[in-house]
Design a protein around this nucleic acid. Sequence first.
DNA 1: GGGTATTGTTCAGTGCACCGACGAATACGA
DNA 2: TCGTATTCGTCGGTGCACTGAACAATACCC
Lengths: 154, 154
Amino acid sequence: MAAADLTTHPGHLARRLQQAHYLLWNTMVSEEITSPQFAVLNTLVAEPGLDQRTVGERVGLDRSTIAEVISRLGRRGLLDKVRDPEDGRRFLLRLTDEGLRTHRKLTVRTARMNQVFLAPLTAEERTVFFDLIRRVSDAAEGLRNPGESLVAPG
Amino acid sequence: MAAADLTTHPGHLARRLQQAHYLLWNTMVSEEITSPQFAVLNTLVAEPGLDQRTVGERVGLDRSTIAEVISRLGRRGLLDKVRDPEDGRRFLLRLTDEGLRTHRKLTVRTARMNQVFLAPLTAEERTVFFDLIRRVSDAAEGLRNPGESLVAPG
DNA sequence: GGGTATTGTTCAGTGCACCGACGAATACGA
DNA sequence: TCGTATTCGTCGGTGCACTGAACAATACCC
């Protein structure tokens, strides 16, 4: 059987896109704080006091991964975890002052980086770019829990 | 400072897209062979006897990562490494019969998976989707080695 | 109120992905 | 030809990402 052309394989393209982003992030935004870590900071700016699982849901990370990311942010002193007094299973998360400062600083740099990253595209193309990726991702995500947002199951 | 909207951040979208793909791959293609591993098999079908670094270049992986991927494929008996008699630094890579069989089987499944993954998009949208992602990735990759493919430096 | 189910977190295991440093082999230049 | 530079592969370290299993706390139902 002949070899396939990887440039028409969305998975391959998705990986390359993420690598390209990773690279640019490292040079233009931060070598310490990663993009997923920034996503967590950003979520906690919008909604302070969320529990760990919900933060993971917001940024699209599973339980194990979000636990590690949060542990790193905690070690760096960017957020605090406290047990929820109303539900002993949860930890409530809140940014420290240092965490807020870091978020503010990185927000500026991230905006600059996105400009560079998207520079090859026109304004209309960027809109299409976002729309197409979101539609594909959402559809695949929907295949994960069949019937999740449909009528109540049997 | 207000929190940013992650749905307009290409890095966040790229990560989500790759996760969605990873998920679908796992359920529709293989739980043992991953997408990067398939990319390596595919490259060696097209160009048997490549050395490790070149394979990495073809699929977009750095030396460390490609070494691990190839080591796993070797452990599974899907490829062989032999020292290049003409250049003792290199290992030449070649698929085993088992590797060829695996590639053939996964090629079929991968095509099916891509159909499902891209189902939300029309034929024209898929073309645009590929084009936009490639342009952004290529441009970012180009920022990595400034002047690499330009006129001779200095 | 007590047993069962669910939920939040953690842990172990696997795999991708990067960087920087190292050793071995080769290529090049004085 | 000899020394330096480059190149290929490896190794150690960090971080993301998933699964499955374990554990504790809570919720629910008889």
